[in-house]
Design a binder for these strands. Structure first.
Lengths: 213, 213
DNA sequence: TCAAAAGTGTTAGATTTACACCCATGA
DNA sequence: TCATGGGTGTAAATCTAACACTTTTGA
């Protein structure tokens, strides 16, 4: 039994997945998700956490199970049933050096190459589940810095759902959600004029959890 | 690795799950889902189909994966990772004799007893996924006979979502879906006056698949 | 001074919800 | 004849979608 991780990140208005070159046979050199075998002493969730930590150096990532993939011949070597997980990370938390060291790359979800074994199917299902989750729960923030502009948030939802949104309607909806707090801070990296920075307040959300985008 | 099956059925305006008494140690005699071990020669989907066939005598059931359950101590005996599946069946297709022979019972989803190991969690997750599926895809028909009345269909959706629906609004929405066809047949078992029987037309649905309930 | 992103309301149309009575029949 | 479930339409309220201009500032 193994675990494979689909790491989603958001950068440059694009939704991306972290992939690398496979380091073992069979399939050495092919594009692949990062994974590992489940130890007898750990649950599969623990295995996924551990694998994510090895890969990113980060703990307590938002992570959800995608499902078990169990075709007999899915792995050209021995019989391996793999459980896929997806995680959402803020790419600015990710150490650029780790990326280079390990030969990993962020690739746009719309330009995914052929991956090893059934990894493309895993990504497909992960994407579907992730989209659904982002529409109904406030987890998109996991893909952004703690402070973000409304334009960034809008670009995120556009990238995830693959369609443009109306700026005024989008902001109207955000204003109704008290748990998306406006700060007095201004971000000037995205424009000359500068944009207010917002933050997600989990407390406020827990008191009145109604989210819909 | 094993597979556990959550069989949903609809009867007497109630959503039910098929459970039985466990026949092996550990946990002999406890209420339990029906399951089996994955053979090395079969995929986990195939294992689920096979297990469902053993249990119901039916093939080609509507079946979806719920997910992998992999706590280290989930099974009091050896380490077993189990993949849960749910299936939708029409209870009138189910041989009543099989039920008695095997000591199985249909229990109301709202009156589920404590089940073996983590089976209650499996049912919980299956239910959540199944509800979501029924809202967005026309699969509820799998829980009904080929011919059904609109009242039966409404009761089904009420049982699944746990809330009453307005009869006129419900029927208005059904009328908009051309793939739910009215026949000239009348069912007199449910009322003195009799009610028209309807059927789901998969062809028509495929031509214009928009379903929402 | 101008290009580029930030910010802001209103209205028409579509969708959703609430609601009450007559019909047909078997017991 | 009456109790039971079958069948039908309308109007108010809510939600959604479309749409354009002013502001700020660094280059």
């Amino acid at each position: 039994m193994s675990v494979d991780c689909i790491i989603f990140g958001f950068d440059n208005s694009q939704l991306k997945v972290l992939i690398g070159r496979r380091k073992m046979d069979p399939g050495r050199g092919e594009w692949s998700l990062y994974g590992g075998f489940v130890a007898t002493s750990e649950s599969i969730d623990e295995c996924a956490s551990r694998t994510l930590f090895e890969l990113t150096g980060l703990r307590n990532l938002y992570m959800r199970q995608v499902g078990a993939f169990g075709q007999v011949d899915r792995d050209p070597g021995e019989r391996v049933v793999s459980v896929a997980y997806y995680a959402l990370i803020n790419v600015t938390d990710y150490d650029e050096k780790l990326l280079l060291e390990r030969g990993l790359e962020w690739v746009d979800i719309n330009a995914l190459p052929k991956l090893y074994s059934d990894h493309n199917r895993m990504v497909g299902k992960a994407l579907k589940l992730m989209r659904q989750k982002l529409r109904t729960e406030p987890v998109g923030f996991r893909l952004l810095p703690a402070l973000f502009t409304l334009t960034q948030l809008q670009r995120l939802y556009e990238a995830v759902n693959g369609e443009e949104l109306d700026k005024r309607n989008f902001r109207k909806r955000i204003k109704e959600m008290d748990f998306i707090e406006k700060t007095e801070l201004i971000d000037k990296t995205g424009s000359k004029r500068g944009a207010y920075l917002y933050r997600f307040n989990r407390r406020t959300y827990n008191e009145d959890p109604n989210f819909k985008l």
